[in-house]
């Protein structure tokens, strides 16, 4: 239970709430920020109405990014397909950044967010550079062919292995940053370490990939042990194991591998490393961002991912 706050920035710009009560569609939008289009927990109107009003702003065609928040009223268990369709139909000619599902823990449980087939977004927006998606339930990518996409973030409580398989066959020649929240088997993660190993091997198909996050994973240690035996560390400069169950076993694999020194940055927010290992990691001559040390649960001695339940 952890995403408490809405995005304050995305793809380099501040994010501000847009609402039909506070914005006059006659007024121009501020092009220096991204707007979040969402309905409130008690909203009388639906998301489509909000978006239609938003599209009425005179300079809406100039916007370069958009954040989609909570789209379903509390009692509707509605997937994101109408939102995807509305975005596709909007044909915003300069849109380069989309975050689909900026929904906090209190608004909806991560694993209760229902996504949909978002492949139409890639077709409608060939200029898209940054895509973030929250919620793994119902999420479908298919094999992506997209020349412009630079960063892809998929935040789930449990990632369906099909997403990894589809990505492993996608063509993303400009992809620089990939962040996937693998999550836990209780909430949809259905992969094994072998699946992850195969996926890691396929990453050389993204020639520009320099930052990889395999986050919120209950097999973070095993993944780290796989990575040091792959060619991935010859390719990327930033590696992120945040929010998962990463602990001493994974850290020792990294510390003992000379390839780790090829990284510029290692990110470990929320981890289970011992003090001694934290100190050793700190001595590596690379930037190690490590904080939020956790202890196994006092009741069952389990390590928990940050964005689980």
């Amino acid at each position: 239970m952890a995403i408490s706050e809405h995005l304050r920035s995305f793809a380099g710009k501040s994010v501000v709430d847009w609402s039909p009560d506070e914005f006059d569609p006659q007024d121009p939008l501020n092009l220096d920020v991204f707007y979040r289009i969402a309905i409130g927990w008690d909203s009388e109107s639906d998301w489509g109405y909000h978006f239609a009003r938003f599209l009425a702003h005179p300079n809406v065609a100039q916007i370069t990014g958009i954040v989609i928040g909570h789209w379903a009223s509390d009692f509707d268990q509605r997937d994101s397909s109408p939102i995807v369709e509305a975005l596709v139909n909007a044909r915003l000619p300069h849109l380069k950044a989309i975050f689909l599902g900026d929904i906090t823990y209190e608004e909806n449980e991560l694993s209760w967010i229902i996504q949909s087939d978002i492949a139409p977004l890639f077709e409608a927006y060939p200029q898209l550079e940054h895509l973030g998606v929250r919620g793994g339930e119902g999420l479908i990518f298919n094999v992506i062919q997209h020349a412009a996409l630079k960063s892809l973030t998929v935040q789930t409580g449990g990632l369906d292995i099909r997403i990894l398989q589809d990505l492993a066959r996608s063509d993303l020649p400009n992809l620089e940053s990939l962040e996937l929240w693998l999550g836990t088997s209780g909430y949809g993660w259905n992969g094994t370490i072998d699946d992850v190993a195969r996926f890691i091997q396929s990453l050389d198909r993204f020639p520009k990939l320099s930052a990889l996050g395999l986050c919120d994973s209950e097999i973070a240690d095993e993944i780290a042990q796989q990575i040091v035996n792959s060619t991935l560390l010859d390719q990327i400069s930033s590696l992120d194991f945040s929010f998962g169950t990463f602990g001493d076993e994974g850290a020792e694999a990294l510390i003992n591998s000379p390839k780790t020194l090829k990284l510029k940055t290692l990110r470990l927010e929320h981890h289970f490393c011992s003090d001694a290992i934290v100190e050793k990691l700190g001595q590596l001559p690379i930037e190690v961002v490590i904080f939020n040390q956790r202890q196994p649960d006092t009741y069952d001695n389990q390590r928990y991912v940050l964005n689980g339940e």
Binding site: I3, S4, E5, H6, W41, D42, T104, Y105, E106, E107
Partner: peptide, 12 residues
């Protein structure tokens, strides 16, 4: 009703 609370530094 449980109303979603404001958050700062990712804490409600």
């Amino acid at each position: 009703e449980w109303i979603p609370k404001a958050a700062i530094n990712n804490q409600v």
